[in-house]
């Protein structure tokens, strides 16, 4: 909406321009090309060397910071997970150790009780065996004495019956034969 109203002076001033339609007025081309080359060349250099590295650097830095922060967060997460796992492992280990100790104690006690019982049984059976042998000895001794008594009795009976002594050996043989 520029320049709605021109003064008459301006209109006359326009008349001073060459009659050609301004964009197609080749007399202005040289100046426009030269100044475009100068200004756009300068603009290109300013953009390429100053503005774009600046903005690119900011974007890059932000990118890096976000990536770094994410990495740090991931690292911390992994750390905490590892700590949790280590805790779980330690807990399981302790539980296992407690179980081991309990079962070890239990089996040791059982073993010692078994051993003691075994010892006691062993002692008892030896004593029983000893007693049995002694009983057998006593028995056989008693039986032998019975033989002697029988011979004595028989000898006494025979001598009192027939009035004379008989050989002890004869009596013993007779007793033996009578048994």
């Amino acid at each position: 909406m520029a320049e709605q109203v021109h003064t008459t002076a301006e209109v006359q001033h326009e008349g001073a321009h060459s009659g050609a339609f301004p964009p197609f007025d080749s007399s202005t081309f040289a100046s426009q090309i030269l100044w475009l080359a100068i200004t756009f060349g300068l603009f290109y250099v300013l953009m390429a060397k100053v503005a774009l590295p600046r903005i690119g650097g900011i974007l890059e830095a932000r990118h890096e910071k976000i990536a770094r922060d994410l990495e740090e967060a991931n690292r911390l997460k992994a750390d905490s997970e590892a700590a949790g796992a280590a805790y779980e492992a330690a807990l399981a280990e302790a539980r296992k150790k407690a179980n081991d100790i309990a079962s070890g104690t239990r089996s040791a006690l059982a073993a010692s009780i078994d051993a003691k019982r075994h010892d006691a049984e062993q002692g008892l059976s030896t004593k029983i065996a000893e007693a049995e042998t002694r009983i057998a000895e006593i028995k056989s001794k008693a039986l032998a004495e019975v033989d002697g008594i029988a011979v004595d009795t028989a000898e006494t009976l025979v001598s009192s019956l027939i009035g004379e002594g008989v050989g002890r050996d004869e009596v013993a043989a007779a007793v033996q034969a009578a048994k």
Binding site: A30, L34, T39, I55
Partner: peptide, 26 residues
């Protein structure tokens, strides 16, 4: 004829304005 014209002036304004904006904004 390579006169500095109103067109040249506005080319320079574009360059200065844009560069100044981009540099100052950042």
């Amino acid at each position: 004829d390579v006169s500095f014209t109103n067109s040249s002036l506005f080319m320079a304004v574009v360059v200065i304005l844009t560069t100044a904006f981009l540099v100052m904004a950042t």
